[in-house]
Design a protein around this nucleic acid. Structure first.
Lengths: 336, 336
DNA sequence: GACGACGCTGCAAGGGTTTGCATTAATGAC
DNA sequence: GTCATTAATGCAAACCCTTGCAGCGTCGTC
């Protein structure tokens, strides 16, 4: 349908290889010739066919980006950042979504593998062994997942969980629940390990409720159980679940933070829109997206640049956390 | 790096064309041979290279999907639906994002054009003429935009705006403000036309505040102005702006719906999480995403299938709308 | 004046597939 | 036994581009 390199060559009276060089190695062609070719190309609306080019160079100038759920507001800022970073490097991003299904995830990587120069795997749900195998077929960068020998960019979730528990403990909470994420989530395991240790160190008991759907519905669904567990504070796997929990508790007549304090993780936009505003651990998702893209491109250049980057998280205290039960006995209690 | 068709041919002792046919036209090859080839392919981990295939067939089995802002929660459900529909048809979706910039949009379509069989343009900000020109280079389907001669899937925003205004009018509101969307938005213009007409028909005055950023910030920023306009109800271009307005009004000590009623459009998930829960017009975004994919694929089959689909919208009444000032004079008023 | 260097361009192979046509062998009809 | 038919496979061109190599003319140097 559209003009090919041959048309341009004909129109400008040169060989196709000269046209090719005009675009991919302009310094090799004479100024006048170049102008003539460019003019012809412009007139014909010619653009090099990247697919054909990829066949030879082995570089598609595309990057795959796989997320579990694009509707999870945690991801869009990361995708956005990755996309603009990629555009800067003259790369396109191929976003695909797995619906939290490891099998779909694997298929997707395979389908993508030939059309991209590398795949950015965000919070993958596949097993280590499958990921390792895939990494032999196409360059991979992991986000939110650590596998020895593979490049990855991590957020310091362990640190985040620790400071969240620390925050709750310092408010006097001694009975804390942890709402785990979906099965297969590395992040969820990390949070659990770190939070449990932090709770023990602070002399608090920690009840783990897991696995859960990492969505508002997931949080809603677990609200009753949280109440039954008779805890005074909850740390959720992510903000969506925390927000669902907020709603569920509200429905059960439980006051937040009066009766129960709630902490989320991620600091999605919605966290500051709900009431009470959600205390949460902010993740530098945009930075992660940018970093992952750069690592992927660098990976292409020099193999075995198996770097590992860890990014800081930050506790954002808002209105969903308050004094624990001991504090309520004292004089300094907040009016209902 | 990975096995090619040649390797498989060699391993199974047949010509590459037989291998090719085993995958693309299995009925043409003998059962035993087929099994042998498939076994060899399996063993070698062979997968046809789609880029190379596209070179000949002219079909990439990819679809481009362009949105203005992936972080706008209006889009993810649509993308999700498009993606699963595409997967059903053995297609991949290439998502790209323009940051609300028409120039980036144009570049993106061009960059994509050779690697996809068609592009789904969601709420494009480009001018009609640019879009028409692009449609000559690559099959296009528009979502939320109507251009004569081009296939599109629309949501009945006009109808939605009309019922929103009708709802407000029936509550007794006579001074209504409309918060417009970004410059270049077809939807924004449609809403404006329809809402203005509906207001006039209901004997209400309509103040248009436009353009605005279609984000929470945009809604926040316009709150003061809304108050100055002394209206009793507001229809916003989308839920994000409505939510921002809610927050802005709260900051100014204005009660919703006591002092001002607010209606959004889209029914994003957040609409039911904010307090007061947002009255809004639900858009069938998932259906739109699926439909657009199917139209695009059909477009490939028979050219000039320039269909036009319009999808129903629905008013969802929640807690951000209440009786207007006249009603408050009567006996049936709501307590505080 | 011969030679090397240099700048520019053309030639052709090659990348991984598909596909129309030719070839072969087997089958069936007469 | 001959010939047409059919099924299965091979052959080779084609898709659009890149790139190593070779060719050509020009210039500067000795």
């Amino acid at each position: 349908m559209r003009a090919t390199i041959r048309d341009v060559a004909e129109a400008s009276g040169v060989h196709i290889s000269t046209v090719s060089r005009t675009f991919s190695a302009p310094h090799l062609v004479n100024g006048e010739t170049r102008d003539r070719v460019l003019a012809a190309a412009e007139a014909l609306g010619y653009r090099p066919n990247r697919a054909a080019r990829a066949l030879i160079t082995g570089k598609t100038h595309n990057i795959g980006l796989i997320v579990a759920d694009i509707a999870n507001p945690f991801f869009p800022p990361m995708i956005k950042a990755a996309e603009s970073q990629a555009r800067l490097r003259d790369y396109n991003i191929f976003v695909a979504e797995t619906d939290e299904d490891p099998a779909v995830e694997e298929d997707l990587v395979r389908a993508l593998s030939k059309q991209v120069d590398g795949v950015q795997l965000c919070s993958p749900r596949m097993s280590n062994s499958v990921i390792e195998q895939l990494s032999r077929e196409v360059p991979l960068v992991l986000v939110n997942r650590q596998i020895p020998g593979l490049p990855c960019v991590l957020m310091d979730v362990a640190g985040g969980a620790r400071s969240a528990i620390g925050h709750l403990a310092s408010l006097g909470h001694r009975k804390i629940a942890l709402l785990g994420g979906p099965r297969g989530s590395w992040t969820s395991r990390e949070i659990r390990k770190s939070a449990t240790a932090a709770a023990r160190a602070a002399g608090a008991t920690m009840t783990v409720l897991s696995p859960n759907q990492p969505t508002v519905e997931g949080g809603l669904a677990v609200a009753e159980q949280v109440v039954r567990e008779d805890v005074t504070a909850v740390l959720a796997y992510n903000d969506l679940m925390a927000i669902g929990l907020l709603e569920g508790l509200d429905g059960l007549g439980i006051k937040v933070p009066g009766d129960i304090s709630v902490v989320g993780i991620d600091d999605i936009e919605m966290a500051q829109r709900v009431r009470p505003k959600l205390t949460t651990v902010a993740n530098p998702t945009a930075t992660a997206g940018r970093t992952a893209v750069d690592m992927l491109l660098q990976l292409g250049a020099d193999r075995r640049a198996t770097a590992q980057v860890s990014l800081q998280t930050e506790l954002i205290v808002r209105d969903s956390t308050g004094p624990g039960p001991h504090a309520a006995d004292g004089p300094g209690q907040k009016a209902g």
